[in-house]
């Protein structure tokens, strides 16, 4: 199929930087094309296409980002990643048999917390989703959801009871979703959890979770395993949703106010012409 320019000319995660071993190439597939990532003897990282040509490269947020096209923009900015005292956690890719756009949409959703992440991120009977604010910020061309609040059963290891937790969601690129969550050890600051998705095909992708947290107590393995557990719960949903592609026409669905971020995301994709991984006519 012809891949639209907007999909082709964008940045996608292809490797975790500090896992690349000198002289040992890794290969991944990005939208049907095989890319090889290699850390050379001089420590330079290069990404090459199947025909040997060099691909664009950015190293950020612990990941190697590349493209099968020619991105005209720099990779999005996450200022929190540069803040003192934060720890960065790379969780590694998880393969999902679903559209990359479905993966992003699921990451933006909170109404599923009591049912999919029961007693972790949500619990009955605290299922109500209050109205929140969603906008497409045209200056940066990103989708933002703010003033999102949801009841979390146990916000931190130290917390005994549940409490309302504040969230913000951000989509800086079609296959990237970033969640901001109030940080228990640092009230007023946000923990950042990113999901960077690499489309392998329209119905298959690798999702890399990444975090920038204020947390001095937990060990790295626990943090990674926790995030993995949450994501595997989501994967069971994602791989059993019909259709696999993300519908841009919601005729066969019933979005309600709780789905406002999802609808804004789909509108934004539609306006951009991002059709890779999308279903245009409802079935």
């Amino acid at each position: 199929m012809t891949i639209s320019d907007v999909a082709r000319n964008d940045w996608y995660p292809v490797a975790i930087e500090n896992l690349l071993i000198e002289g040992q190439p890794e290969t991944v597939v990005l939208m049907g094309e095989t890319l090889t990532i290699l850390r050379a003897a001089d420590d330079q990282i290069k990404v090459t296409a199947a025909d040997g040509s060099e691909c664009p490269l950015t190293l950020r947020y612990g990941h190697v980002w590349s493209s099968i096209g020619r991105p005209e923009h720099a990779l999005f900015d996450i200022p929190e990643a540069a803040e003192e005292g934060r720890r960065m956690v790379d969780c590694g890719p998880v393969r999902v048999k679903a559209s990359p756009l479905r993966v992003v949409e699921n990451f933006l959703d909170i109404a599923h917390f009591p049912f999919v992440h029961t007693d972790i991120l949500g619990a009955e009977p605290h299922t109500e989703v209050e109205p929140y604010k969603v906008e497409i910020r045209d200056t940066v061309d990103e989708v933002w959801a703010t003033k999102v609040r949801f009841f979390q059963p146990q916000a931190a290891k130290s917390a005994e009871e549940g409490q309302m937790t504040d969230y913000m969601y951000r989509v800086p690129a079609p296959c990237v979703s970033i969640l901001y969550k109030t940080s228990p050890p640092r009230p007023g600051a946000w923990d950042v959890i990113g999901l960077f998705v690499r489309p392998i095909s329209e119905e298959l992708c690798d999702a890399y979770a990444w975090m920038a947290l204020y947390d001095e107590d937990s060990n790295q393995t626990d943090l990674v395993q926790f995030q993995q557990m949450i994501f595997l719960q989501d994967r069971s949903i994602l791989e059993n949703q019909i259709p696999r592609l993300l519908p841009l026409d919601p005729k066969m669905e019933i979005p309600t106010r709780a789905d406002t971020t999802s609808v804004a995301y789909r509108r934004w994709l539609k306006r951009k012409g991002m059709t890779y991984g999308a279903q245009l006519v409802a079935r």
Binding site: D249, P250, P255, V263, R267
Partner: peptide, 13 residues
């Protein structure tokens, strides 16, 4: 009515 607004804000392709 909110759901109506949401669905129709997308509509067909």
């Amino acid at each position: 009515l909110d759901a109506m607004e949401l669905g129709c804000s997308l509509g067909p392709i």
